[in-house]
């Protein structure tokens, strides 16, 4: 009887063990394929929400953020009068047209007058001097002569 019971016990043990082995054999490749399957499912969502919140704050608060001396939204360099320029000069047209141009005080004043006469630009009052000073200080005219050297050549083997 004892022998029979022992046999039953050991055979049950073998069955359990082999069951475990089969489970393990199944689990190992499964784990390799889906390493995070058994982790708490809610965890990534928590992280995500935090990330979203970061992003939201960043976008809402820092529309006028400055990185490495550049106003990210417009590309203007940091300087006295920057925000006056941003607020008055980039609602109808792009900052790109300003950044392409180089003028002296007379040139910018004439351009502002032209925009007021023909393009519906509002009166700038005391801001006009601030704007023009910002532009001539940060984007001064450079003499290019009659023909410049070729620059920015991207050399390559033909």
């Amino acid at each position: 009887m004892l022998k029979e019971e022992d046999l039953k016990k050991s055979s049950r043990l073998i069955r359990i063990l082999s069951g475990l082995v089969i489970l393990l054999l199944f689990f190992i490749p499964f784990h390799l394929m889906f390493p995070h399957f058994f982790e708490l499912k809610s965890a990534p969502e928590v992280v995500l929400t935090a990330l979203v919140k970061d992003k939201i704050t960043e976008i809402e608060v820092d529309e006028d953020r400055i990185e490495n001396g550049i106003h990210i939204k417009t590309g203007f360099v940091e300087g006295e009068g920057l925000m006056v320029v941003v607020n008055n000069c980039t609602s109808c047209h792009s900052s790109k047209i300003i950044l392409q141009n180089r003028m002296n005080t007379d040139g910018w004043n004439a351009t502002i007058k032209w925009m007021q006469e023909t393009q519906n630009l509002w009166g700038l009052g005391v801001n006009q001097e601030i704007i023009v000073n910002y532009l001539v200080t940060n984007y001064p005219v450079k003499n290019k002569g009659r023909r410049e050297n070729l620059s920015g050549i991207d050399w390559y083997e033909l």
């Binding site: 003028m103 290019k144 002569g145």
Partner: peptide
């Protein structure tokens, strides 16, 4: 290429 620079694109 104009110098002094001309206004525009």
């Amino acid at each position: 290429e104009f110098s002094p620079p001309a206004k525009g694109n």
